[in-house]
Design a protein around this nucleic acid. Structure first.
Lengths: 201, 201
DNA sequence: ACTCCAAGTTGACACTGTCAACATAGGTCA
DNA sequence: TGACCTATGTTGACAGTGTCAACTTGGAGT
């Protein structure tokens, strides 16, 4: 048996604890020393498993993308492509609302250099492809420069709007802007309406 | 004359230096000690003018919003409302491209509590109102739940998309996603197309 | 049994924000 | 004029951070 028997669960414990911190108080207050302290190990123990703070960051970002993808794929079934796209949009917003700090971790935090963390990169790309593939199977309203159909570009449009709404709603800029409570509640569905109008043939 | 003669230009110097740091290396590397060091004053000098790091942060965010508003208002004139909206969109993206780190400072950075920094809040709101007022004077394609016209909501839609594209384009998630160089160049205009399709009657 | 290395330890360094105590120069007011 | 007072600046300290270096140790592989 070449299975290393215990292969130190400290590593997993670090990741778990890091997640707990991020979900409670946001990524900026994540510190390796704090992780170590909570685990009751020395402040250097985590460094035996992660070369630097960026590496543990990349790990939890990668795992978050994975969770996010799974969440998107578990959306309620819809037969019509348009309804399915909307269902995905709803699910997207639901995730952002359920896990605001993890959402921010993935999309509003300066990432460690992607080139150095291929896993993180791969998982992020996978999530984006879910959206792109959904659009690739729809017939869309042609744009002015009609010639080329590009699900990439339209996926980018949809994603941008969803991401925009999600981050605007949870950012403090928003509270600042003086929208009424009603507006806030209607914001999401209005944006869905507009996206539909933009895409439907 | 009750005009305080010199009213210490250290305060202004701090702000200027803080801006320099933010534009060069991003807000997360902004430290008051560094500011002090560059100015050749003691590490506590800035604290005589700003109670905390958050306060100088709020100040440069407020000023950035001001600059941003001015930039939007200086867009090339267009008579037709639709063309003017597009012009504003172009200007928005131009700002984000010219000052990526200041853009991030305003829109992708956890802000100090807005309630405690009314200037910052006011300036942010002012910028948003430029967009909202532009939309208020357009006749838009009605949405399904037609009854109410709400420039607020549609401004939010447009802003979300613009903000989404801007931050997606400059975020490292994007580089990760594997869009071709062509796609990148066409992304912005495609999104403008889609916005038009969504809004035009 | 011997070796070797992964994993954990303690200690140090430079950096951060912030509090406290002290210095001083200039303007206000008796 | 002289006393005082406040705005501004200084030095020094403390706890927190990431990370490097050196040391210890338990256990797997030869």
């Amino acid at each position: 048996m070449t299975i290393r028997p215990k292969r130190s669960d400290v590593r997993e414990a670090c990741v778990a604890e890091a997640f707990r911190i991020v979900e409670e108080t946001g990524v900026e207050s994540l510190s390796l020393r704090d992780v170590a302290r909570r685990l009751g190990v020395s402040h250097q123990a985590p460094y035996k498993h992660f070369p630097s703070r960026d590496h543990i960051l990349a790990e939890i970002i990668a795992r978050s993308f994975d969770e996010f993808s799974t969440f998107l794929e578990r959306r309620p079934d819809e037969k019509e492509p348009e309804a399915d796209l909307r269902s995905m949009g709803v699910q997207y917003m639901r995730y952002a609302q359920l896990h605001p700090l993890k959402y921010r971790l993935m999309f509003n935090t300066p990432m460690p250099d992607p080139a150095k963390h291929p896993d993180m990169m791969r998982n992020a790309q996978y999530a984006f492809n879910i959206l792109r593939d959904r659009l690739a199977h729809m017939t869309l309203r042609p744009t002015r420069d009609a010639a080329e159909v590009s699900p990439q570009l339209d996926a980018l449009f949809v994603w941008s709007t969803l991401h925009g709404v999600a981050s605007v709603l949870q950012s403090s800029v928003f509270q600042t802007i003086g929208l009424s409570e009603d507006d806030r509640n209607n914001a999401v569905s209005r944006c869905f309406e507009r996206i539909s109008l933009a895409l439907e043939p």
